[in-house]
Computed example of a mutant assay.
Amino acid sequence: MTPPGPATTPPARGSRAIVVDRPGVHRLLTGEVPGPGPGEVRVRVAAAGVCLSDREVYEGRRDAAYVRYPVTPGHEWSGTVDAVGAGVGAELVGRRTVAEGFRACGVCVRCRCGETSLCSAGYDETGFTRPGGFADHVVVPVRLLHLLPDDADLRAAALLEPAAVVAAAVRAGAPEPGARVAVVGAGTLGLLAVQLLAAHSPGELTVIDPRAERARLAADFGATEVRGPEEAEKLHGHFDLVLETAGAPTTAASSCLLARRGGRVVLTGMFAAGAAGIDPVHLSLSQLTVRSVFGAPSSAWTFAVRAFTTGLLDPGPLITHTYPLERYAEAIARVGGGDPATGKVLLRP
């Protein structure tokens, strides 16, 4: 039975959160523990991933339409429900969980078609326009939760947000058994993509990245070979499906060159202004299908969580560094700092 009012575990003495007041200025704020409103839950954060988007927020390089200062960043996180608001069942307290980031309206045409990442009500996302997971607690609508088993590894589960993005890309690419598949980029997105693509039994699964250090991990995850960008030029026109994950200035254009005539290309990396464009002549003559992915709809979250809970997806080996909230600045500096030994960076409250 749904309780008439909020249920909760004993509250902590205050709740800490990183607040970026404006680009380049942040503080670790201790305030009251936030309370969930009607239809919401409060989650005690176990771990939160730091990605290049978080660095863009801190440095002021994110498009103004996609961030609202002051903000508590953190869109990749996992935790345990420790309070529920009115209208939410108390049985959720104590459940391990992750949650979708987009605050989709659920009633527009795109949402009703299942394309919640294309919600026409406007952009609204945890960690960018709403307080995120770089905190002791985060409050989210209960409808966005994806519950995990009681024994789920919450450290690894913090990577389910990028895994959902990759799941959206893989589903868009529609890989078939025996296909020749390339993944451009061996960062977090690329290596998660390798795991999901390997489950589709490709005939070839080639990873393209200049960092030799990433090759071993890619092979462990199911890649059949790893090549540098210069070596990959010999494979132009070879692949049935190319999944781009790097977001580098030239990788959208080069990914299209890797695809065979009539092949498919899915762009997942976040590109900056000035990136090389796709040659429209090559695009039309080769009859390529090109898709892009920004965020993940609810269906992709369900896909990623199921892959994680059944053991098809294991993000844990990607994590190389963990910092407490007090060392947020160090964590941000490490992400995108150029150290080839840096994989996924976590904050753990």
Rank of each mutant, 00 (worst) to 15 (best):
Thr2Ile: 12
Gly5Phe: 08
Pro6Asp: 09
Pro10Cys: 03
Arg13Glu: 14
Arg16Val: 09
Ala17Val: 03
Val19Ala: 05
Val20Gly: 02
Asp21Cys: 01
Val25Asn: 10
Thr30Lys: 04
Glu32Cys: 02
Val33Phe: 07
Val33Ile: 14
Gly35Ser: 11
Pro38Glu: 06
Gly39Arg: 02
Glu40Gln: 14
Arg44Trp: 04
Leu52Gln: 14
Leu52Gly: 13
Ser53Trp: 02
Glu56Gly: 10
Glu56Tyr: 05
Glu59Gly: 05
Glu59Asp: 15
Arg62Thr: 07
Ala64Cys: 10
Tyr66Asp: 01
Tyr69Met: 04
Tyr69Cys: 03
Pro70Cys: 15
Thr72Trp: 00
Thr72Phe: 01
Gly74Thr: 01
Glu76His: 08
Ala83Cys: 09
Val84Pro: 08
Gly89Ser: 13
Glu91Asn: 09
Leu92Cys: 09
Thr97Met: 08
Val98Met: 05
Val98Pro: 12
Arg110Pro: 04
Cys113Arg: 10
Cys113Asn: 15
Gly122Lys: 04
Gly122Phe: 15
Tyr123Thr: 00
Gly127Phe: 00
Gly132Met: 00
Val138Met: 05
Pro141Phe: 10
Arg143Phe: 13
Leu144Ile: 02
His146Arg: 09
Leu148Pro: 07
Pro149Cys: 14
Asp153Trp: 11
Leu154Ser: 06
Leu154Cys: 05
Pro162Ala: 05
Ala164Leu: 02
Ala169Arg: 00
Val170Arg: 01
Pro175Trp: 09
Pro177Arg: 05
Gly178Thr: 08
Arg180Phe: 03
Ala186Thr: 04
Gly187Ile: 11
Leu189Asp: 08
Leu189Ile: 13
Leu196Asp: 01
Leu205Trp: 07
Asp209Pro: 02
Arg214Val: 05
Arg216Glu: 14
Leu217Pro: 00
Glu225Leu: 13
Val226Ile: 02
Val226Gly: 06
Lys234Pro: 00
His236Leu: 12
Asp240Ser: 12
Thr250Leu: 07
Ala252Val: 14
Ala253Glu: 13
Leu257Gly: 12
Leu258Asn: 04
Leu258Gln: 07
Arg260His: 02
Gly263Asn: 00
Leu267Gln: 03
Leu267Lys: 04
Thr268Val: 13
Gly277Trp: 09
Ile278Gln: 12
Leu285Asp: 12
Ser286Pro: 11
Gln287Met: 14
Arg291Gln: 13
Phe294Ser: 14
Ser298His: 13
Ser298Ile: 11
Thr302Cys: 02
Phe303Asp: 14
Ala304Asp: 04
Ala304Tyr: 04
Ala304Trp: 05
Ala307Arg: 11
Phe308Leu: 00
Phe308Thr: 00
Gly311Arg: 13
Gly311Ile: 14
Pro315Phe: 00
Gly316Met: 14
Leu318Thr: 11
Ile319Phe: 14
His321Met: 03
Tyr323Ser: 15
Glu326Gln: 12
Glu326Pro: 02
Ile332Leu: 08
Asp339Trp: 05
Pro340Trp: 14
Gly343Glu: 12
